[in-house]
Computed example of a mutant assay.
Amino acid sequence: MIPVTRELVTGIKLTNYKDFIVEHLEDCPKEDKLSRLKHIWSMPKFGQLPKKPTKLKLLEHTRAYLLYLVSTTIFVDASQRSTLISYLQLLRDLDEAGKYAWGAVALAFLYRSLSKVADRESHFSGLATLL
């Protein structure tokens, strides 16, 4: 069960995506537009945990996996095949990540998507299971 009544899910506007990605995942794709992290880059890089990982490697792989999981469950947008880097802010401190109201933000994302569909602005995005 994902929590609905906990800390508000917010973030700050990032100005330097490359440095932010390197700080939290150690590596960064060689692309110009880094506001989204493509799954085609992250899956081969973080899909398999190295043998005898250091604590830092374990944290980086865990962040990458959770970032992928969040983008394919709560903030689903099948047309993108990528994840907004801004979500990585929520996974900096894994102890803190569990304190967020993920359920509330999932519903807000779903309602916003439904609003866009009703206004014929966009296709459906969001966790259809909640619908």
Results as ranks from 00 to 15, higher is better:
residue 115 S to M: 10
residue 110 L to H: 00
residue 118 A to R: 05
residue 68 Y to P: 00
residue 32 D to A: 13
residue 49 L to R: 10
residue 89 Q to N: 11
residue 71 S to M: 03
residue 28 C to Y: 02
residue 114 L to A: 08
residue 41 W to Y: 12
residue 33 K to R: 13
residue 58 L to Q: 14
residue 83 T to C: 13
residue 40 I to S: 15
residue 78 A to Y: 09
residue 95 D to G: 06
residue 98 G to D: 04
residue 68 Y to S: 10
residue 77 D to Q: 07
residue 74 I to Q: 02
residue 102 W to Q: 12
residue 63 R to M: 06
residue 130 L to Q: 06
residue 6 R to K: 14
residue 18 K to M: 12
residue 125 S to P: 02
residue 48 Q to R: 15
residue 32 D to P: 01
residue 28 C to V: 02
residue 80 Q to F: 07
residue 117 V to P: 05
residue 18 K to A: 10
residue 22 V to G: 12
residue 97 A to L: 04
residue 114 L to Q: 08
residue 110 L to S: 02
residue 80 Q to W: 04
residue 34 L to D: 05
residue 92 R to D: 05
residue 40 I to H: 00
residue 12 I to D: 10
residue 115 S to E: 11
residue 12 I to M: 12
residue 123 H to D: 12
residue 6 R to T: 07
residue 108 A to H: 04
residue 129 T to G: 04
residue 73 T to C: 03
residue 99 K to Y: 06
residue 117 V to C: 14
residue 39 H to A: 07
residue 124 F to N: 02
residue 45 K to E: 06
residue 118 A to P: 06
residue 83 T to A: 14
residue 45 K to S: 07
residue 131 L to Y: 04
residue 56 L to M: 08
residue 122 S to F: 09
residue 60 E to L: 10
residue 22 V to F: 09
residue 86 S to Q: 10
residue 36 R to S: 08
residue 52 K to H: 13
residue 74 I to W: 08
residue 44 P to M: 09
residue 25 L to F: 03
residue 33 K to Q: 13
residue 64 A to S: 15
residue 102 W to F: 01
residue 93 D to G: 11
residue 60 E to P: 00
residue 119 D to F: 14
residue 43 M to Y: 11
residue 26 E to Y: 06
residue 122 S to E: 14
residue 19 D to P: 01
residue 58 L to T: 07
residue 16 N to W: 03
residue 31 E to Y: 09
residue 29 P to Q: 11
residue 25 L to I: 10
residue 18 K to C: 04
residue 33 K to M: 11
residue 78 A to W: 11
residue 20 F to I: 05
residue 15 T to L: 11
residue 61 H to D: 11
residue 111 Y to M: 09
residue 112 R to K: 10
residue 7 E to Y: 03
residue 80 Q to A: 12
residue 26 E to R: 15
residue 98 G to I: 00
residue 25 L to H: 05
residue 12 I to S: 13
residue 30 K to L: 09
residue 118 A to K: 05
residue 54 T to G: 09
residue 97 A to P: 07
residue 75 F to Q: 08
residue 85 I to L: 01
residue 77 D to A: 06
residue 4 V to K: 13
residue 39 H to P: 00
residue 94 L to G: 03
residue 62 T to C: 15
residue 108 A to R: 08
residue 60 E to T: 08
residue 24 H to L: 14
residue 62 T to V: 00
residue 89 Q to C: 07
residue 74 I to Y: 13
residue 78 A to I: 13
residue 121 E to F: 11
residue 25 L to P: 06
residue 54 T to S: 15
residue 117 V to H: 06
residue 71 S to H: 09
residue 127 L to A: 03
residue 84 L to D: 07
residue 23 E to A: 10
residue 108 A to K: 12
residue 130 L to E: 01
residue 30 K to P: 01
residue 121 E to W: 05
residue 70 V to P: 02
residue 21 I to W: 01
residue 57 K to Q: 15
residue 76 V to A: 00
residue 9 V to A: 12
residue 127 L to D: 01
residue 115 S to R: 07
residue 105 V to Q: 07
residue 25 L to C: 04
